[in-house]
Every structure is written in C-alpha cells, then in structure tokens.
C-alpha cells in the first residue's frame, strides 16, 4: 500500500495568521511557505507500536489513589485516512484540564482547584480497525487572557502521528452544543464550517455505561490517500 498526500486537503486547516487569536500575532510566519516535495523524509515517520500502553494510560480516572472529581466520560473513535480506511496501531496522545478547568501544568494560574486524583494525560494505540478508547472526566471550560472575558470551550488535546511526517497533527476535541464556540478564536480559526464541526465530538448513547459513564465519539481523519483511488462515479 502506498499513500499520496494531496495538498488540497490542507485547506481544512486554519491559517497560522489568525489575528483574533492574539498569540499568533508575533508567532505566525510572515513569509510564504515554500512547497516541499514529498521525499522519503516526509513519507516516513516514527512508529510507536513498541510503546507499552497500559490500562492506566487509557483510563485517566485510575492514575491515582482515588477517583477524580467530575463527570466520568468514555471517549472513543476511529483514526482514518482520507479514503476512510482505518489507521491501525498508531499512537494517540491526549491531555486536558480537570473538571474545574485547571491544568496540572506549573504555569496554569487559573484559580480553580487542582485535583490530587487527576493528572489529565493519556496515551493509546489504535487497534487493527483504527479504534481507540479513553476513560476520563469531562474537562471544564476555563478563562484565558486573549481578550476581555475570554473563555476556552471545554476540550481535550489530541496528538497523532499516523504513517508519516506528513500525517502528523495536533488538534483539539470539543463537546457538542458548547455555547462558547462562537466566542472562541481558536475554534473559529478554522474558517470552513464543515471542517470546524469535525472537531466537535458526538454524544454516543451506544457507548455510555449505565449507572457509570456518559460517552462521546470522536473520529480523526489524517492526511493520506491511496495512490490508486477508486474511480469516481460519473454519468453515462
């Protein structure tokens, strides 16, 4: 199997020059990007199949002596390529704030409580069908200083590798119906509404566990398409 990486798909991404998100002002390159041909350096990438992912890496509620506070949730999904085929045995890294909207990170100054029973970091490998599964608590929204009264909608950070340097992506998963979407310049930096909505997970009643946890589904589509795509349908 050999993959190609059409550049057209990159239109789904935000522009780094997104001035409503103030941190971009001094960090977005001013010069145009230079088109890089896809050589072996780009079409290969690290493989982490050997990384031991144990149960507490995928269950963020069991990494400490006690249970974290908050709404327990199950997050599942599939990692797919642009043809909709599963990306098996690929690494998924996640991190998030706790239920109060506070990160463990030393530089997070939000005056909301840390939870001694929650770190908020997880890791999983997709199975042969590209599926992953985490158990965690729903992260809280939190304020930031981008503009007056700025709040980030609740989100979980996702980091994925896929098959090559070209498929590498870091993104954020959001929760359906969040009233903060319209005010968030990071979410809104994705100008294509359809692409933006692909970052919103789906409430998933099928995966909920009665009297235990709610569930959300979040599929992730990485760059890469079969080199010999199926014939497009056309009228005769």
């Amino acid at each position: 199997m050999s993959l190609i990486y059409p550049r057209e798909s990159l239109k789904a991404h935000p522009l780094n020059a997104s001035p409503e998100y103030k941190s971009t002002l001094k960090r977005a390159p001013a010069q145009p990007l230079i088109l890089l041909p896809h050589t072996l350096s780009e079409t290969t990438g690290p493989v982490f199949g050997h990384v031991a992912v144990n149960e507490t890496d995928t269950d963020l509620t069991r990494q400490h002596a006690g249970e974290p506070l908050g709404e327990r949730i199950i997050v599942t999904g599939r990692v797919l390529d642009e043809d909709g085929r599963p990306v098996p045995h690929t690494l998924v890294e996640i991190w998030q704030a706790n239920a109060a909207g506070r990160y463990v990170h030393v530089r997070d100054q939000h005056p909301a409580p840390l939870d001694p029973n929650f770190t908020g970091a997880g890791r999983a490998l997709t199975d042969a069908q590209g599926r992953y599964r985490f158990v965690t608590v729903k992260p809280g929204a939190y304020p930031w200083r981008n503009h007056h009264n700025a709040w980030r909608p609740a989100h979980i950070h996702f980091s994925l590798f896929g098959p090559s340097f070209l498929s590498r992506v870091i993104t954020q998963m959001y929760f359906p119906g969040d009233p903060l979407f319209r005010y968030d310049p990071i979410f809104q930096s994705i100008t294509d509404e359809n692409a933006r909505n692909r970052l919103v997970s789906r409430f998933d009643i099928e995966t909920t566990e009665p009297e235990w946890a709610l569930a959300y589904q979040f599929d992730i589509v990485l760059r890469g398409r079969n080199a010999t795509p199926l014939e497009e349908p056309h009228d005769h």
Partner: peptide, 30 residues
C-alpha cells in the same frame, strides 16, 4: 454507477483540522 463507488465517494471523510498545542502540553508530551 455502481453502488460500491457511490458509497465510497459519499463516505469520503474530510481531514481533521489542526489546532494549537497550547501552553500546557508538557505534563503529557514532554
């Protein structure tokens, strides 16, 4: 057109867009 190609085209998913890593990744990634 065959059903198979029709399904393939209609279910072709769009790329998941990128977002910033943010300032608080270290406890997970490094």
């Amino acid at each position: 057109m065959t059903t198979e190609t029709k399904l393939t085209t209609e279910t072709k998913p769009g790329l998941t867009p990128s977002q910033t890593i943010g300032p608080f990744f270290a406890y997970a990634l490094t």
